[in-house]
């Protein structure tokens, strides 16, 4: 029973953190049309920086190495981790958001991801290399040590509340004039530029906000698990978030969350217990990646708007007498004459 309860808690925390990742990507791609091909790197930045701020200095005698080791209290370290991923987003934006095609940004995100992945693995002085960080201080450490299930459920509440705040924030942003500018940029950046908006600034905001939100998910992830190594943030993980967003519905925050339920939890967790094939232990994860990749492509083919499409904006309106509603001439100008030539 307690194993089952613990498992349910883990599933819920997974769901909530993936919701957060997908909401972050939705602000970048669904709102502003920014192609971030290394979502998971921002999760890792949040997690690693939380870890090196919260942990005591590295103990070289254990052959464990990492930078900083400031031993800050966990709330402050959480902020440090979140800020770190926001800064990474800002830096990438500085390089690639200025007057460039969306290909370039995609290339720079992918390149940064590859680079940081290699760097954090090969340079064991940064985040302890391929071994990764473990025994990372968790919030409510004593509860975590003595009553793991209680800790899990406390964490369900924490991550659930954080997720709701992020969701609320994303919705506020979506329906605001700023969100509208972001979506217009997604449709046609040049035109928004030609109407006097500083599109660089608006896209930068979407980039940094999205990265920060993914970073929040990263901090929660490492706080719950207490460890992270490069094996935990491969490119495949980025695809999970992308598949979730595309399946659920880009531009729709509920859709984004539904997508992470379908892809990250039901599909990913559901296939976790398929028995391994002894002769090729990688078969199941490989197949899972193939399916995730196909899911991305197929959803663009069959239902690019996702299960829950972006919702049509409605506004409070005072009644207005339609000047053309009565006259035949006006109606024909609307409907018949104005057809495509």
């Amino acid at each position: 029973m307690s194993i089952f309860l613990g498992y349910v808690a883990t599933i819920l925390v997974t769901l909530f953190t993936y919701n957060i990742f997908t909401l972050g990507l939705n602000i970048q791609f669904g709102y502003a049309g920014i192609l971030n091909f290394t979502v998971i790197t921002f999760m890792a930045m949040g997690a690693y920086f939380y870890a090196v701020f919260v942990m005591p200095p590295a103990n070289a005698s254990n052959q464990v190495f990492y930078i900083l080791g400031l031993h800050w209290p966990w709330p402050l370290a959480s902020i440090a981790g979140i800020v770190a991923s926001g800064i990474l987003g800002y830096l990438i934006g500085l390089i690639a958001l200025k007057r460039l095609r969306s290909d370039y940004l995609a290339i720079v995100t992918l390149a940064t991801g590859t680079l940081l992945y290699g760097l954090s693995g090969d340079q064991n002085k940064l985040f302890d290399g391929w071994a990764g960080l473990f025994s990372v201080n968790q919030p409510f450490q004593s509860v975590a040590n003595n009553h793991p299930n209680t800790f899990s459920w406390i964490f369900v509440v924490i991550s659930g509340v954080v997720m709701l705040i992020v969701w609320w924030f994303a919705n506020q942003l979506y329906s605001s004039p700023l969100g509208r500018s972001m979506r217009a940029i997604r449709e046609d950046q040049d035109v928004v530029d030609a109407f006097g908006k500083n599109t660089f600034k608006v896209r930068m905001m979407a980039m940094v906000i999205g990265s920060t939100i993914v970073g929040i998910g990263g901090v929660l992830t490492i706080q719950y698990i207490g460890a992270l190594s490069p094996a935990g943030w491969t490119t495949g993980e980025t695809f999970v978030v992308w598949a979730a967003l595309l399946v659920g519905g880009r531009g729709n925050n509920i859709g984004a969350m539904l997508g992470s339920l379908l892809v990250a939890v039901i599909f990913n967790e559901g296939t976790r217990y398929i028995p391994q094939v002894a002769s090729s232990p990688n078969l199941v994860p490989d197949l899972r990646n193939i399916i995730i990749g196909s899911l991305v492509i197929l959803s663009i083919w069959f239902r690019p708007q996702g299960v829950l499409p972006e919702r049509k904006a409605k506004f409070f309106e005072l009644p207005l007498k339609d000047k053309y509603a009565q006259t035949f001439g006006g109606v024909s100008a609307n409907q018949e004459l104005a057809t495509e030539v």
Partner: peptide, 30 residues
């Protein structure tokens, strides 16, 4: 024509007006 295809006709107009207070992040959210 370069309309914002994925937005409604009304939104196409709303978005182009400059100086809306909700274009700042703080105002937009809070």
């Amino acid at each position: 024509s370069r309309e914002f295809g994925g937005m409604t006709v009304l939104e196409n107009l709303l978005v182009v007006r400059l100086g809306q207070s909700g274009e700042s992040l703080i105002n937009a959210v809070f």
